[in-house]
Write a protein that binds this DNA or RNA. Structure first.
Lengths: 210, 210
DNA sequence: GTCTATAAATGGATAGAC
DNA sequence: GTCTATCCATTTATAGAC
């Protein structure tokens, strides 16, 4: 009964504190990097006391890992929706490719990628979570799609649908993506990306047309 | 004359201190990330006092940036040597591709890439230096090579040699590269890389064969 | 659970002797 | 140029009141 009373009494603002802390931590870690952010700064940014953070997270490392895994799951949801839209094979590949290539230069995605890459050696589960939630999922989906297209006689992949999918997706991790990762431009050049996707799709189809 | 005497007297170990410091800093920054490394730790690792570091570098940021630019130049030298080896077009592309794809999973290169990606937003010159010394240089070289091949009637690129080069190189930044970046494997799987390079080369040639 | 206050150690950077 | 010793702000994490 004590537990029940507690739950009632605290359903309001208390339950939101962990989320506030995660969001504040995400902002600061993105701006300054894991090692450069202090728990004091996170407490200030979240509008809570430091002791409150330690009431919800064991230490800085656990807060970081917990927050990052949530962020990975949330970010990749958008692109995991990539399903075949109606149209001919070329149009479908172009649409999937454009969505993915543009996703890969979104500032939120780029910032997340930077943190994952930077801290993967110290947080092994993080690199794994990112890979499974994103690249692995989307590669599998595209490979299945290409396999269906081959079964319908629209492509000649020699059964290597997974490798073909990897080749296609790799071409979408293109120079604009790299330039975004390296913070070389103020904002990504979307027309250039569209042209690259067209080029990659054309090349893919020329190579794998029956 | 005082200057001359000083130079004589200090030609031995003193001139090497900056290099010792750079090397120690590289090791620690790679292991722990920029924000997590202290100047005390660098001094210990280099076997010098903290004051000696500050005698050669204005502060932590300048030490990091100076060291990183040196590291970028040194690392990319290996792959910038990539010149056409004798053989037919397919064999040459395969050789270039294999060298580049294997370079991209070397632990030293992966560690450097992680740091550049992590700190590019805070050190804009770093992302620029990395890009110019590596991807930009190699893309230009390959584009020129492909253009010569097209002039000889061995390829049909429609004049878009640069885009073709980018497509080919993007396929070499493949899943093993991504897995290495994310620290998913203990050691890179070279046979898998060779198979991917073969696949990418075949696809490239099927698409662009006259 | 949440706060204020503080402990105990470490951070970047410098002074002054040699 | 190089060292030892040190300044003072900041660090992670906790104690104790509510």
């Amino acid at each position: 009964m004590e537990a029940a009373r507690k739950l009632e009494r605290t359903a309001g603002s208390r339950a939101m504190k962990p989320q506030q802390i995660r969001q504040a931590a995400l902002r600061l870690f993105q701006e300054q990097g894991y090692g450069a952010v202090s728990m004091d700064a996170i407490a200030r940014e979240a509008g809570v006391s430091k002791a409150t953070i330690y009431a919800h997270f064991a230490d800085k490392a656990e807060l970081f890992e917990d927050m990052m895994k949530s962020a990975c799951r949330e970010e990749w949801v958008a692109v995991s929706m990539l399903d075949a839209v109606p149209g001919d094979l070329g149009a479908e590949l172009r649409a999937i490719g454009k969505a993915y290539a543009e996703f890969l230069v979104e500032p939120r995605v780029v910032r997340l990628y930077r943190m994952v890459v930077a801290e993967s050696p110290r947080f092994p589960e993080l690199g794994r979570a990112f890979f499974e939630a994103g690249p692995r999922l989307i590669t599998g989906k595209l490979a299945a799609y290409l396999q269906r297209a081959e079964a319908q006689g629209k492509l000649a992949l020699g059964g290597a649908s997974n490798r073909a999918a990897q080749n296609f997706l790799a071409m979408l991790r293109c120079e604009p993506h790299l330039r975004a990762i390296l913070a070389l431009d103020k904002s990504p050049e979307m027309p250039e990306i569209a042209a690259i996707v067209d080029s990659a799709t054309d090349m893919f189809l020329r190579a794998y047309r029956p």
